[in-house]
């Protein structure tokens, strides 16, 4: 029985709703990227595209290494990371307490939500001209754009997650003698923290999007600014190196947040006995 099952598995690659092993998913993920770059490299080498506009992956990697070692690209990367971390930190330090308060106390929601939800429909980039007029060309307008871009979504997400803390948990706390602040602190906060961290992970990706916009439009430093400089000299390889670095950074932060989630909330990730 087991033997025939095994050979069956081997023959049937497409199995309805059958989860794949972690080994198979890793191989599959590597495969699709290798395929993508292989096709690209092949097309570029065969001269099927203009190498000025579409450099080969090999050429991009060579440029990237050169930029990291011999030019000041590391500085641009660090300043971009710093902008993202700082503005996201500012956004979170407002959004987390406010979102929790709005989700826990309908009276706070009644005041804050009409304001917050309206802002969500104002596209953050539309503030760039006025931010430049107000704050000049320093760091402030960039940070302000990044904060405006995520804070209102973050508040709303955190409020919604807080509202989803089950009524029975709160009522249990009440019948155990907790007052409202004790319940916010010892029941609502720990219940909602895992979801807040997930919301932060999702919104951090959006922050990267606004970072590139800010740096392309109004900056002389950072990854985005480097890419705009490269465009002027038709350095497509540098632009693509920039894209790759942004992607790699986004992925790294995502993985860090996942690790943090596992580390902070072990009870949500199966047994660790």
């Amino acid at each position: 029985m087991t033997v025939s099952n095994k050979s069956n598995n081997r023959r049937q690659w497409l199995q309805l709703r059958k989860p794949v092993s972690s080994r198979q998913s890793l191989i599959s993920a590597i495969f699709i990227w290798v395929l993508f770059f292989a096709v690209w490299e092949g097309v570029a080498r065969a001269g099927l595209v203009n190498s000025l506009l579409v450099p080969s992956p090999h050429a991009i990697v060579t440029t990237l290494v050169d930029m990291l070692i011999n030019r000041d690209f590391v500085y641009d990367i660090l300043i971009s990371i710093w902008r993202v971390v700082l503005s996201f930190g500012i956004a979170c330090s407002v959004a987390i307490p406010l979102g929790i308060m709005m989700g826990a106390f309908p009276a706070v929601e009644a005041v804050a939500n009409p304001f917050v939800s309206a802002w969500r429909y104002l596209p953050a980039p539309s503030f760039i001209p006025i931010l430049l007029m107000w704050f000049g060309t320093g760091e402030t307008p960039k940070l302000a754009l990044l904060v405006i871009g995520v804070i209102f979504f973050l508040i709303t997400l955190i409020m919604d997650h807080t509202k989803q803390v089950r009524k029975e948990l709160i009522e249990t706390g009440l019948t155990l003698g907790g007052d409202r602040w004790t319940i916010v602190r010892t029941i609502i906060l720990p219940s909602v923290m895992p979801n807040i961290l997930t919301a932060m992970r999702q919104m951090l990706a959006v922050t990267w999007t606004y970072l590139v916009i800010a740096e392309i439009v109004a900056s002389t430093t950072g990854i985005g600014a480097m890419m705009m400089r490269a465009r002027r000299f038709l350095h497509t390889d540098e632009i693509m190196a920039g894209i790759i670095v942004i992607g790699a950074l986004g992925l790294t932060f995502d993985i860090l947040f996942r690790k943090l989630h596992r580390w902070l909330f072990p009870y949500l990730h199966g047994r660790e006995s």
Partner: peptide
Amino acid sequence: GMVFQAYTSFDWLSVRGNVEYGMRIN
């Protein structure tokens, strides 16, 4: 004190942490 039909365990606390919860806040 009330026990509900829906499960009300505090998932972030161990069984002991759950049982101690009321005494802790009081």
